[in-house]
């Protein structure tokens, strides 16, 4: 069974539903306070997935994810070891890192995704929404690029709930390379089924209508929408209408489908590692 470390504390606030999502995906989540990880009470070596959930880590006072990313890169464990070294060791051992919303913002600031250059430098930004405000609204996303292999040829209705989700690439080369390698794995869709340019189908003004990114090595994944807020059909805003129309919602089309996909990817990697 895929073991997942879901961090909490320091302003994260989606750990409970995230753990529920992993359980529904057949994985084994452990919710641990980040301080317990830093204190050495939990070890990354015991997990296949490290998950950074949504929330407002450290209040997002200096920009979303900024402070937490700094702790990852510059912080130390109680025993004096560097947190960043542990992250690199975890990835080196084939571990997967997932970040949703604030978690994605942390991954981006820490240079973990997309990491095209392989040196963990920040290559994209999640800048303030074009609307200038925090918004909670449901959007439609489509699996694109490597996402098709990961999630299947599917579309997902999911809520976004953020003030800073406008994905910007550092420069045209990064943009081209990310696109070329298929790292934009979820794309906001407009009503006509194309990549959403206009607000509100593109809720934040993200370049390439990018809702999610995969790292070049495929081990780090981050997304702005919240699959953990769509764990059952009754989380959907139109669940009553769908029920009346007799529509059946497949689990794979809810947020659980996304959890299942990356749990499977982590399991595959773990199995390959074991076989090797």
């Amino acid at each position: 069974m895929v073991r997942v470390l879901v961090l909490c504390g320091y302003g994260f606030n989606c750990e409970e539903e995230t753990a529920a999502g992993y359980r529904l995906a057949g994985a084994e989540p452990t919710v641990a306070h980040t301080a317990d990880w830093f204190d050495g009470l939990v070890q990354l070596a015991d997990f296949e997935i490290l998950h950074f959930p949504g929330g407002f880590s450290f209040g997002d006072d200096l920009g979303s994810g900024q402070v937490f990313a700094n702790r990852l890169k510059n912080g130390r464990f109680a025993n004096g070891g560097r947190v960043w070294d542990a992250i690199l060791a975890f990835l080196g051992a084939g571990g997967h890192i997932i970040g949703i919303c604030n978690g994605f913002q942390i991954l981006v600031r820490a240079g973990l995704v997309p990491n095209l250059a392989g040196i963990y430098a920040q290559e994209v930004a999640l800048a303030p929404n074009g609307s200038g405000k925090f918004e909670d609204r449901w959007v439609r996303c489509q699996a694109t690029g490597l996402g098709v292999g990961l999630f299947g040829e599917r579309e997902f209705d999911l809520p976004v709930r953020h003030g800073e989700g406008r994905l910007e690439f550092a420069d045209p080369q990064v943009r081209d390379l990310a696109q070329e390698r298929g790292l934009v794995v979820l794309t906001y869709l407009d009503a006509d089924g194309g990549p959403a340019v206009q607000y509100p189908a593109n809720p934040n003004g993200a370049d390439l209508a990018a809702a999610a990114l995969l790292s070049a090595d495929g081990q780090v994944f981050g997304m702005m929408p919240h699959p953990e807020a769509y764990l059952t059909f009754i989380n959907h805003p139109d669940w009553g209408g769908r029920q009346r129309r007799g529509e059946v919602v497949e689990v794979a089309d809810t947020g659980v489908g996304l959890f299942c996909a990356w749990v499977a990817a982590a399991a595959g990697k773990a199995a390959a590692k074991a076989a090797a």
């Binding site: 529920a20 949504g54 405000k133 989380n235």
Partner: peptide
């Protein structure tokens, strides 16, 4: 309403 997160916690 949209400025308020009304579905964090997923419940």
């Amino acid at each position: 309403i949209r400025q308020y997160d009304h579905e964090v916690k997923g419940k």
